[in-house]
Design a protein around this nucleic acid. Sequence first.
DNA 1: ATAGGGTTAG
Length: 794
Amino acid sequence: MRRNPEHHGVFFPIGSIHRFPLFFFIILIIAAQIKQSTSFGHLLSCSYRQPRIFAKNNLHFSFVNHHYNTIRTTDNITQPPLNYKKTKTIHKPNNERPRITISPEQVEEQLKVALAALQQTSRGEDEAKLRPFPSVRDCNAALAAFGDAGDLLRALRLFGKMRKAAAYGGTMVPTPTLVTYSTLMSRAIKFSKPLVALRLWDLMIQKRSPGAIPMEDIDVRAANIRMNCFAKLADVPKAQNLLQQMITGDGPDVPRLPPNIVTYNTLLHACQRAGDLDAALAVVRHMHHCRPDTRTYTSLMATVARQKSASAGRNDPSLAFVLLDEMKSRGIRPNGITYSALIDACGRCRRPDLALRGLRIMLMQKAQEAESLSKMKGNQNSNKAIYTLPDEVGAWTAAINACGKAGRIQTALRLFRAMPGFGVMPNTITCGSLTDSLLRAGATAETLDVLRYMKKNGIVPSEVMYTSLMTRAERLAKMERDGKSFSMAAQAHVVALDSQPFEDQPIGDARAIDVYTELIKSLVEGGRRSKDYSPGNNTLLAETTTARGDDVLVKVFLVFQEMKTAGTMPDLACYNALLRACARAGDLDHANDVLRQMLAADLCPNDTSWRQLLQAAAQQKNSERALQAWKQGVEYSKERKRKRPFKDEPNVLTWKPSSSSLAALLSALLAEAKEPSISSEKRIALYRKVVELYDKVLLGDEKMGFDRLDLNDVLENQRVVILFIRGMLGLSDFEDDPVRLESQRLAVRSILELECLNQRDETYRLPWVVRETLNKAVAFSRAKAPVHAKTKEC
DNA sequence: ATAGGGTTAG
């Protein structure tokens, strides 16, 4: 696709993209960036504990390497072949008559009719009514088609009919085959429903179920699909167990199936999802007969530095660079995704300098390959297209993200503007990552630029971006309230450029993006010129201006509304962002409304969702509704349990409240208790409730769902513990009974001994309020006489 | 042309 040269005026001010000097110029820029960084030398001097994890395998693979097709460049560096495209077995156009294609819908209809007819005849009706069934192949193709379209339910319904038909038996019936199950399971995984895939597996091997597959018929591909389920679930033990079963053949799930490179790569993917580098390295050590490929190394690199704590090398991306060198030396060619994983590992370690180093290495590889390619082609210089690696955009995106999230937004922007000059166009993720970084840094003018770029290039914002916009919108408003205002001059400039009429633009996504533009603009200007929209331009905005102009919540809802209008399905994170906005505003009614919408959309609220409800109540200082929300959360899961059998329930079937959620509940109670307007009876009742909850938490009270709390987690949560202490201290002020007072004293004393209150950390000082509470608590716990006098003394 | 694996934004 050709790009409009006009764009360069806004986004690529450096110049025309096809000129070679630009290429050079960018390299210089990036080189300068890297040189600037003081910590650059660190990597070279640093060697990882296991610098050559493949050492054992190298001996073996030297034979393989011998046959590996390589190109020698002038630099005497071994290069992999440039024609990287998978050599696929090409089916020669056979002489047989072409099969008549039948659409998935037709298959569906034909199967329905044939099944109905079969059911009728089996009840003793006329056999002449029988209709022909579609072939298994056609059914499988239809399943694949529905699955690819994301309509899993439709595919599953079709599959159900196949099973029903199979129950009647007969040769003309499309009985599910291994391919049927494989097709369905792969589609379920593709749409992140690994649990559905696993249930299909159970159905597949269930004896006496119609269309079951005998265990010995299961092949490596099917086993790999099962492995992929565990990968998506980040379940390393189960994945390892499956591998073991495949090797030994004595397990309950699969027959003996020699694992292949796909099996190992999928297992490595499981390790990546779990962030378990040690497990990943162990897998590689046990890959005997399989030569690792690009994907092997890519997964490994993506596992580096995923966990924040634990053993050595965890916060250090150097292993990823070691792996890169190693794969190159073995003639395995890194691609854009490999570099993306490498660069992202640097980003995770907060090392934008190393991320840029990774990008530069990629550019060097690119230049080398381009050169050898042009030499191969000889003097055919007509090819104007810029040479790129496959999937290069991911590497740029990761680099932009690494810089942006580290606060180096100027560098991030420079990379963004430079990429087209390297023949790589930004995508939704590139733009979404960048705008999130920009908004985080308060750079609204630049954000608008990116939004305009997206509009011009037809890049549709994803649900991730909407969530980011909603989340950041609040932060921007907060910054505005705090007086950390943005450069209004810059704003005026951009806004002037952008004020084109809507009328002559196509309706659809392009129009939607204008609203976001206006939205951000209105956020920045919010409060100052609150009712300055011209109603003719946009009815949606005009309607909402009847609300208070500086109402952040309205704006967040507006983004949400716009997202739905644009046809993007909000996901759990979107709803949670919305709930968060409600919580901040203390708008419990809207929060409940959002919750209803979530449930209507068949999304399962998670801990964050429930916590937002609690926090909304806390913000309102409304203990009643906080307790009500808690109970609602605890009881919700019960309804969920017996729902449709083929819906993939999210990871949590029941709400497992986190300690932070408990903190939200407690702070709602204590917030109301502190209200001066309430009666002292009410106050006592509230403090008593907190103390009562403490006991119930310790006992794991089932009615409150406290049995699902992780007690260790609760007692390690400083905030929770402090809140409990506050409740006890509050109650002690009203307590006259010496026996009960003494037991409270005991409780406070035992809490004070908890580790989370006794950390001797020089770098972290407790907030003043916390220290004050602690001082009071210490005084109370030591006091023998009535507390009132003592505390007032202090 | 009916089935398998890698990366990046909230």
